[in-house]
Computed example of a mutant assay.
Amino acid sequence: MSHPQPASSLPVRPSRRSALRSWGALLGLSALLASCASTGTPPAPTTPTATGMQLNGTRVLGPSQVQFGVTPLNGTQTATGTLSNPAVTFTTAGVSGTVSVCGQVSVQNTVTAAVTLDATGSMSSTDPDVKRRAAAKAFVARMTGDSQAAVLSFEASSAPSAGLIGSRLHQDLTSDQTALNRAIDNATYASGTTNFYDAVVDAVKVASRAGRPSPIVLALTDGIDNRSSHSPDDAIAAAKAAGVPVYAIGLDATGTLDFTQMERIASETGGLFRSNIAAGDLDAYFSQLYNAFTAQGCLELNLAAAPAPGTTVAGTLSVDVTDYGKATSRLSVPFSYAVRDTSGPN
């Protein structure tokens, strides 16, 4: 006679539902582990922070100390990011030194600019095709939002506008691009001699009197001042008192004019200077300056020894530009500037 086995010794066969439940749990755990593994190391960003860099001009602080305004770009658009790891290589024999970051990229969307244009008689030969007119209009065309500009001209043979020393105000600060373009047409004539220092004092007054934030002066001339009632020191003092940096452009395709005082006005007011500009370069450079006004950083060159006046110092500046979520960009831009004798008045 057979005896039944105790219940505890009988084999237990799992139900189909229980087996499916166990299998589902294993699949869920596997998916969770795979998800954790995939998110543990995010892929490195591939979009570059910037694709190029432009040099906006120089600011001379001393015989061996020069700053450069630089703007990172994505194509033709300004880019932002943190500047780091600067380096410099020189192509000028016997020159050596180091470079440092003297300012991160500062961004502003609103531009307030008093644009003052040389209308002296010599402009008929240095800018016979009135390229400055097209350049100024292209500058105006880039204005967006609450940006405003004013248009002045200067030459010593015409009576100045009311309240000004030596300039004609063709259009006060406005966002009206049609009015600004009409003013540029009226400002681009050729007559008289050069009163650049008076023109700077006037443009500073126009740029700052509306009380708008961060006003600047953009001044273009093709010659050395020979008629102003004010000195370079007067122009610098007026700009500093108003907090208005002067960006000065020397129209001089041959590089033979002595723009020492113009460079000094730009440098000591916190602006930038650029010369060796031909009329055909004005459109591109006015566009570069608009970029500079909206997004600009600073690189400072410190030379081991001061070069002799008349030396052209040239080379290449390089810097990393980094922005969150993008790949670091290593950017380079060539530079060149003339060393001027700043030991005494011009």
Rank of each mutant, 00 (worst) to 15 (best):
R142P: 04
T91W: 04
T112L: 09
L251T: 00
A141Y: 03
K205N: 12
A7K: 10
I224D: 07
P215R: 00
G81Y: 12
N186E: 15
A134N: 04
R264H: 01
P215D: 09
D258M: 00
L20W: 06
Y247F: 15
L32V: 14
A79H: 07
T322L: 09
F154M: 08
V204H: 08
Q177T: 13
D185L: 12
T328L: 04
A338F: 06
A19N: 11
E300G: 11
M143A: 11
A159H: 00
N195D: 14
V60L: 01
R168M: 09
S275A: 15
D185A: 13
A241R: 02
D323L: 14
N226F: 02
D185T: 15
P42C: 05
V107L: 08
Q65E: 12
N186D: 14
V204D: 13
S318N: 03
Y285M: 12
S96A: 14
P334W: 07
S147V: 04
T254S: 14
G103C: 06
T110Y: 01
Y290I: 03
V99W: 13
S214V: 05
F286K: 03
I236T: 06
D225M: 03
R340I: 02
R264M: 04
H230W: 10
Y290D: 15
T328Q: 05
S336T: 09
T116V: 15
I265N: 03
P128R: 09
S158W: 14
A219G: 10
A203D: 02
V206I: 14
A162N: 07
Q148C: 12
D172N: 11
T116R: 10
P48C: 06
L303E: 11
A162H: 00
G81M: 14
G315Y: 05
G315P: 03
S329F: 01
G250M: 07
L317Q: 06
V111G: 06
T328G: 06
K326N: 05
A308T: 13
K131A: 08
N302D: 12
G250K: 05
P232E: 03
P63V: 05
D222Q: 02
N291I: 01
S106D: 04
A187F: 11
M53F: 09
A134S: 12
D146I: 02
L73A: 04
F196A: 14
P6F: 14
A235L: 10
L61A: 08
L331S: 04
A136Q: 13
S231L: 03
S214F: 05
V12Y: 12
T76G: 06
L26C: 08
T260Y: 05
Q54C: 06
T342A: 10
T193D: 15
A306I: 00
A210V: 02
L20M: 07
A248V: 07
A31V: 12
S18R: 07
A19F: 07
L117S: 02
T312A: 10
A219N: 05
A237S: 14
V101D: 10
S38D: 10
Q296M: 15
I184D: 08
A219W: 11
G28L: 15
D225N: 02
V111R: 09
P63R: 02
A87D: 15
D146K: 13
R168N: 07
D198E: 10
L303R: 07
A284Y: 01
T112S: 11
G121I: 01
Y290A: 06
P232C: 05
L10C: 12
A207W: 08
